[in-house]
Design a protein around this nucleic acid. Structure first.
Lengths: 341, 341
DNA sequence: ATTAGCACTCGAAACGAAAGAGTGCTAAAT
DNA sequence: ATTTAGCACTCTTTCGTTTCGAGTGCTAAT
């Protein structure tokens, strides 16, 4: 689609105007911005409607961008400003405050994104597909309970408390430690399956009966390590947009609870902010929303995604700027965390 | 306030009718239920208005319970049915599934309450005021990072990962272990303050310089152990009630974010379900909501609270039944967990 | 003390007119 | 060939009016 420069300016003006006000934009307001008469603007806008880039709620109303119009704007017209110095500093502050584990970091990032964009934020944690078992630790927590900690090569730590119906002596815990680390160290976490543990069990002979509880805990922790987790925050921000009715919001949130579908949407090309507009999201419930996704890299490898869900009438340049900066910083920080190991 | 039995039946009928429909209740509907003519009901309702137990949105509309009317209903008229067998079983299933740590359990309970009542749920964890340090464990997680785990006598475990700018040898971790457990075991967790750690530091001499990071981690973990935590869930359920406008919901949720105020509201008498109605909550933003609180006991001691926040037009008997049963079971379960230690 | 009957009240829904923002089109100007 | 001024037209919004009906309050009969 090739537009004359003036049509581009008019389309941009309609988009920014509508994003700001939420009201259809009249030819007069656009004319002032573009510097031609309102009649000219009207003629041009009529053609933009022909092209399917604008819409008219009804004759004699102003114009509103169509979803294709937003697409054109996002793909070719908008400029993503660099993040303001002070905002960038605020982001960094959040990143470097607090704990040293990836999941905690990403949780803070999720809240940050929600706050900075006034939208709902979704963050996916790195998948642990390729993670290997670094070590398994046992810590006694009471006479008959202990905590199992599974540490992986990707820096995650997952713990589970388990309960045995016999007293856990130091002796027994040492045995657990020896057996688990002996069999597992260096293995792919993804290999820890019920079948695999069955196999381990057989080789243990009678000792196996003692190890049911820790094995269940291990399995659980492994599943947790391998899987991608979705963190969400700021869902309430969607209530701020009058074009999203209460019922709409409820439906949107229901869709967000379908983890598989959401995870699918986050699978975008890494390297830039990808934006999905309205019906492009493939769900009628989300037809009035847009999703901006930016994947982050850890050690140069695609690892996870940061995303923002808001109304179609979203401030795309602002959101893109935030996502771009934050995903870059998240990637760097996580890489450092990992390198350090 | 003494009401004739018939007035009681009429008030009950108005409350249940209004709770069910959300519409003002007319004399005809009540008449059918109570078995007298609508004119009689109208006369009685007029007196109930005099008494301040009912309200009339306008002449020629049906009646609506006033907040005092709800109060009367809740205090004297409603009967709390025992929880249905199957519901009780569902609750138990949630309690006994999953992990063995109190916080995890209470999180599940929170979700459960939200789902079962279609309201927002708030759960406070037991305070660790009186907790003593059972042990401090260190687990190496990478060359220069380790996890500190603080286990308390109340069964909680809080962990923090910390980072040192020197390599953590086994030797060093053993020293950490000896020092921390030597100085802390058996002490009140609440005593772990910056000042106290300063004191410990002085007695360590030069070794102190190594211990900054783990001490900060410890402090953080201790704060976490001592403090009461508020878990919340199902905030979105409030969107289901048309009488709560979008803006109202937003304000309500803002108030819920004020942890101190919320914690204050949960400080009720243990032993029964306490219900606060509308303005009794002391915040104009909450004037259209009610809170039902039930505190749970661990080892016979008041420990924490389960609560449900919904519209004033709440199904009080149902909510009370759920809370009563769940808080009983939570108390039992946590007590067992603790005893086992 | 209760109830039937009935006029009355008040909000909600339906309708219509007026106002106003913004358009589309035509003809003049550049 | 573009651009613009001018003007009639369209469609929503707003506001006042009317209508309708649920539900009441009161009175008189039971």
């Amino acid at each position: 689609m090739v537009l004359t420069p003036r049509k581009e300016r008019i389309l941009s003006s309609v988009v920014t105007g509508y994003v700001k006000s939420g009201e259809p934009v009249g030819s007069k307001a656009v004319a002032e911005e573009v510097g031609v008469s309102s009649a000219t603007v009207r003629n041009e806008m009529a053609e933009l409607i022909e092209l399917g880039l604008l819409e008219q709620p009804h004759t004699s109303a102003g114009r509103v961008p169509s979803q294709r119009g937003y697409r054109e704007y996002v793909d070719r017209l908008m400029e993503v400003p660099p993040l303001k110095e002070e905002s960038a500093r605020a982001v960094d502050a959040v990143l470097f405050s607090g704990s040293y584990d990836p999941e905690g970091l990403l949780e803070r990032v999720c809240r940050l994104l929600a706050g900075a964009t006034r939208c709902a934020a979704v963050v996916s944690t790195p998948s642990g597909d390729s993670a290997q078992v670094r070590a398994v630790q046992f810590v006694q927590t009471s006479r008959r309970t202990a905590m199992l900690i599974l540490m992986s090569s990707t820096g995650t730590m997952k713990s589970r408390v388990f309960h045995c119906d016999f007293d856990l002596t130091n002796e027994i815990l040492r045995v657990f430690f020896r057996v688990f680390n002996g069999k597992l160290a260096g293995r792919n976490v993804a290999d820890i399956t019920p079948a695999f543990l069955q196999g381990v069990g057989v080789s243990l002979g009678q000792m196996y009966v003692l190890m049911g509880a820790p094995m269940r805990a291990l399995l659980d922790a492994a599943r947790d390590t391998v899987g991608t987790h979705l963190l969400m925050g700021g869902q309430m921000n969607l209530l701020f947009y009058p074009e999203l009715e209460q019922t709409d919001v409820r439906q949107i949130l229901d869709v967000l609870e379908e983890r598989e579908h959401l995870a699918e949407l986050l699978r975008q090309r890494p390297g830039q902010v990808e934006i999905l507009i309205g019906r492009e999201l493939g769900r009628p419930e989300l037809a009035n929303t847009s999703l901006a996704v930016s994947r982050y890299l850890v050690e140069g490898q695609d690892a996870g995604a940061l995303a923002v869900l808001g109304p179609v009438r979203m401030d795309y340049p602002q959101v893109a700027a935030v996502l771009q900066y934050v995903s870059g910083q998240v990637g760097k920080t996580l890489t450092t965390l990992l390198r350090d190991q």
